[in-house]
Every structure is written in C-alpha cells, then in structure tokens.
Amino acid sequence: MKQLSERIKEAAFGSLSSGQVEMVIGWQKGPLWWQSFPAFITDPGETASLIWDPFSVSNLNKYLLNEVPKKKIALFLKGCDALGFNQLLRDGRVEREKVLLFGIPCDGLVDPARVEATGLSKGLLQVKKEREELVFYYKEGQRKAPARDFYYSKCLSCRYPNPVTCDEMLGEAVPCQPLERFANVSKLEAASLEERFTYWSRHFSRCIRCFACRNVCPACSCRECIFDIAEPRWLGKAKESGETLFYHITRAYHVAGRCVDCGECARICPLGIPLAELNRKFIKDINELYGEYDAGADLDKEAPLLTFKSDDPDVSA
C-alpha cells in the first residue's frame, strides 16, 4: 500500500501545483490506529500529509455537493466511491469537467470493530497492509493475520473493487471475489410477516435520528431534504416508532433504483442498524422485476424506476 500512498501524494501535488485544480480531497491520519479521515488540501506543500491505509474508508464524493460549485477539485475514488460519483453525475448534482478523478483499486478495508472483537486492538499502535496480510504494530513487536478476516462485510461482497470511472488509475487492478450480497435479504424474505416486522422494529427502535445514514449517502443529494423541513413538518421530531419507520422507509423508497449499494449507511450507523439490507431488498426486487441493473455502473442502461414501458411487469399484472 505504501506505493499507492506515494502515488496519491504525487497526484495531489501535481494537480495542485500545476494549477489544474484548486483543492484536493483525500485522507489524512489521526493519532489512533483506526482514525483515517477526509482531508481538504489547497496548498501543494501540505500534500505530503495525505495517506492511503486500510482505514481510508470515508467516501469523498459526497463533499462535492458543498465544494464543487466554487472551484475545480481533485479527489480519490475507490470502487464503491466511483459508483456513488456516477450516481451524483446521473442525478445532475456534479459537473464532470469540474472534477479530476484519481482511481484507487481497493480489495477491501478494515473494520475496526473486527479488530477489537479479536482482542488485537489492545495497545495497538498501527495497522499496515502487506499483500494479503495485515501487520499489527505494538510497542513490544508485531503480529500478522490474513487481511480478509478483518474487512467490512460490505467489502467482502464488493463487486466493483476497481473504479468504473476515473481520469487516472493509480494502481494495478485487483481481483474481485465477492460473497453473495443478497444472502441476508433472502433469509428475511423467507421469514413470516410478523417475524420481519419484529426484526425491523427491534432494529429501528435503536435509531436516534442522527441522520448520519442520509448525510453520507451519495444517492441523498437533494438540496433541501423533506426530513429537515420545519413547516410543514413531514417528519415529527419525537423518538417514536411510527416516525422512525416513516423516516427509514421513505428514505429507502427515495433512493431505490439510485442506491449504488456502497454500504456507507450501514457502516456509519452508530447503533448498528442493518440499513444496507433494506436497500438491497429494493435492488433485488428491481433486478427480478426489470432485469439486472447496477446503479452507478450501468450508465448506458435506462434507470428502471425512471422509465415506463408498456410491458413492465406491474403493468401487465
């Protein structure tokens, strides 16, 4: 990964110092082993602080909604991020010519919770990836383990590890070995109505309405969101099961057909609500009803939920 991290610094330095862009969005590192976060750099002298490591999970493309209208920006895209970028483009929310994209092939990133679950986090100073292994650094030495054991579940079912779009690719393409992504959805579909209602009610009862799932979502790009409107107040502010269900179900319907299955909503949820399953149910249904469609990847296909055909299954039924 070190090589890639050097190439990121070079790309950032080059595009800023040549005046090609005015800002670069990448990742920087905090003092704790899992703290990699979005960085906004305008001074070529600061590009050396950019990193790429097993925790560079934050999707950077959503920031384009705030930043791009002002200036031309360079940013780094992993496979999942490239899908989100394409969706923002398709939704008319970014201007392609105002963005310089550097692609990063990524075979998976590390979920800190999985490191903690194994007890490896105690006294952990740093984690590096070396080929297929993670190296855990401690004061007293180091330990190694297979990297894939620590990846986010969303990474294990990733079907686009190599960005489907970019201006320049910064690394060699990585192989793709996705796990079946609809396994949990199929399990839920097999459950009774009552079981499913209990399942979702239990999970949603934990929702604190922080809106992190919406704010991180590349398909949620409305300038004004219905859930923020005070008058009329469509979504009540009470922590009440009906309101919470209204929020999550409305959001799931709204992003249906545009959700790129990047899994950020579920990753970011502080209460561990399996939001990606809800979105994947819609994706599965769309695939079954209208034919396979990958939002963010199938740019030449018509968006099934935005297109009417006289032989649509719900018409003929």
Partner: peptide, 8 residues
C-alpha cells in the same frame, strides 16, 4: 469541511 452535519 469534513463534518457530515449528522447528530452522532
């Protein structure tokens, strides 16, 4: 810049 504006 990096704040997502969520309530976590």
């Amino acid at each position: 810049h990096r704040c997502l504006g969520c309530g976590i």
